[in-house]
């Protein structure tokens, strides 16, 4: 698929900036329109992996980043000894003991930033082409975190122009230089005062809380905590990550609203 040039283009389509799914994360900052209109996307992309990874990783790839869990991201040897979890063809969640739900975490860094700016996704598959809100491709089921067909190809990510977004981005991780997220908080507010907060790393899908410039911070925090189904399945504890949701949202509001 890497030979498809049309997936590597950044173009303007009507009132949207279309970013091809094969645009590399390190190349986002080379496009003036992204730098000017959506700097938070560059900020988010620069927290992905290492510089070497960002030179080969693509925006489409990061949006589809596989969910993670400390009980899933293990060697075959480890799984053989401890047992296979729901996400690995087993019949029980090792983290919670549940036989129904997998809580592996959504860890894309760019998707929360994109969703906070009302990004859409252009998809082609055997049934044709369509455009969806980016948050609608995530199921919330850790075993099958996306509802895309096997034949689906992500053509591009569409970002609305002329909304004059002001954004904030925070990422919690063990090592600032490399790790996957333990909590991502992206908040954007547009020129009309529409506010969208998006959390990653605390649920099998991005947690979205919408409001406006007059929204009560405590209410936003309450809704964010209610929507986050974080469990103890990574290095930081569930309680610490939930505490940090409040901290990051407060910092975001201070930056954006004052």
């Amino acid at each position: 698929m890497c030979g498809i040039d049309e997936l590597k283009q950044v173009t303007v389509k009507e009132n949207y900036l279309s970013i091809g799914s094969l645009v590399r994360l390190d190349d986002l900052k080379k496009h003036a329109a992204i730098v000017k209109e959506f700097p938070v996307l560059i900020e988010a992309a620069e927290t992905v992996g290492s510089p070497l990874i960002r030179k080969s990783a693509t925006l489409g790839g990061n949006v589809l980043c596989e969910n993670r869990c400390i009980y899933y991201n293990q060697s075959e040897w480890w799984r053989d000894a401890v047992g296979y979890c729901l996400k690995c063809e087993g019949n029980i969640c090792i983290a919670t003991g549940s036989k129904k739900l997998c809580y592996s975490e959504f860890v894309s860094d760019t998707a929360p930033a994109l969703i906070s700016m009302d990004a859409e996704i252009e998809i082609a598959d055997h049934e044709g082409e369509r455009t969806l809100k980016l948050e609608d491709i995530y199921t919330g089921d850790g075993v099958c975190p996306r509802n895309l067909k096997k034949s689906a190809v992500i053509k591009s990510i569409l970002l609305p122009l002329q909304r004059e977004f002001h954004s904030s981005f925070h990422k919690l991780r063990q090592r600032q230089s490399l790790d996957f997220t333990s909590l991502t908080v992206a908040v954007s507010i547009d020129k009309n005062g529409k506010l969208k907060s998006v959390l990653g790393g605390v649920d099998p899908k991005p947690v979205v809380v919408e409001g406006n410039s007059d929204s009560n911070l405590e209410e936003i925090i309450k809704l964010a905590l209610k929507g986050s189904r974080a469990i103890d399945n990574e290095m930081f504890s569930r309680n610490y990550r939930r505490s940090m949701i409040s901290v990051f949202l407060k910092r975001s509001f201070e930056k954006l609203i004052g």
Partner: peptide
């Protein structure tokens, strides 16, 4: 197979039935 357009990729995958996978990864 190495498609040069999205249309070609979709067409190729249709021909393969269910026995195909897209490879677009980098890391």
């Amino acid at each position: 197979l190495k498609p040069v357009s999205v249309h070609e990729a979709i067409t190729m995958s249709k021909v393969c039935g269910d026995d195909f996978r897209y490879i677009a990864g980098a890391t």
